[in-house]
Design a protein around this nucleic acid. Structure first.
Length: 188
DNA sequence: AGCCAGGACTGAG
DNA sequence: CTCAGTCATGGC
């Protein structure tokens, strides 16, 4: 449940802003599907204000939770739907990254999550071209094909890219402390 | 004091 | 299909 909430709240916002919201919801004992679905909008807004876009995100979160409740009853049952990714993408407010985050981290299904760090780092080290031709699905398939559909590997690879992106590749074109320095020859 | 964060939708061309 | 505009707060 927490992962699903986080997947929506972290859209285009640093994870730090999301932690506070999640902690507040948990501390109040409201990290529960029915509670969140029936929560008054004004109240929900106050819980998630720190994540920005709070009006949009409140609506998106409720829509997602209602979709889960009505179609599966609970989160665990979602894994049996072989067409789940397409159905998630059909929900307004759920794009590819959010859908894959839910599939991989909440449901342990073998989908690679492509985020801004992935694009940046892959461009930086020359895995993809600088021109924006390479699209989300291209990278997802590339990684899933290379790594194999092992859930733990996909999680760890994504986590490593995030850690690397946060520490080294955010603003500095070429960082001397970066583990990839020796193979990194181009600016973003 | 700006600038930007682990996005996604919409409307225009 | 590509692209700018929009949504909004908090950290540095």
């Amino acid at each position: 449940m927490e992962i699903i909430v986080g997947a929506i709240l972290t859209q285009n916002v640093s994870w730090k802003n999301v932690e506070k919201s999640i902690e507040r919801i948990k501390a109040s004992g409201f990290m529960d599907m029915d509670t969140l679905i029936s929560m008054d909008d004004e109240v929900l807004h106050d819980f998630i204000r720190s994540t920005g876009y709070y009006r949009q995100k409140a609506g998106r979160l409720k829509e997602l939770l209602k979709f889960i409740k009505e179609n599966y009853g609970n989160i665990e049952n979602m894994v049996f739907d072989t067409n789940l990714r397409e159905k998630l993408l059909a929900i307004k407010g759920i794009g590819k990254e959010t859908a894959d985050s839910i599939l991989l981290y909440a449901l342990d299904l073998p989908y690679f999550v492509v985020d801004a760090y992935t694009f940046r780092i892959f461009r930086r080290i020359g895995i993809i071209e600088e021109s924006n031709k390479v699209k989300y699905e291209d990278i997802r398939e590339m990684v899933e094909k290379s790594l194999g559909k092992n859930v733990n590997d996909l999680k760890e690879f994504h986590a490593l890219l995030v850690a690397l992106g946060k520490d080294h590749c955010k603003k500095v074109p070429v960082c001397e402390g970066c583990p990839l320095y020796s193979i990194c020859q181009r600016k973003i």
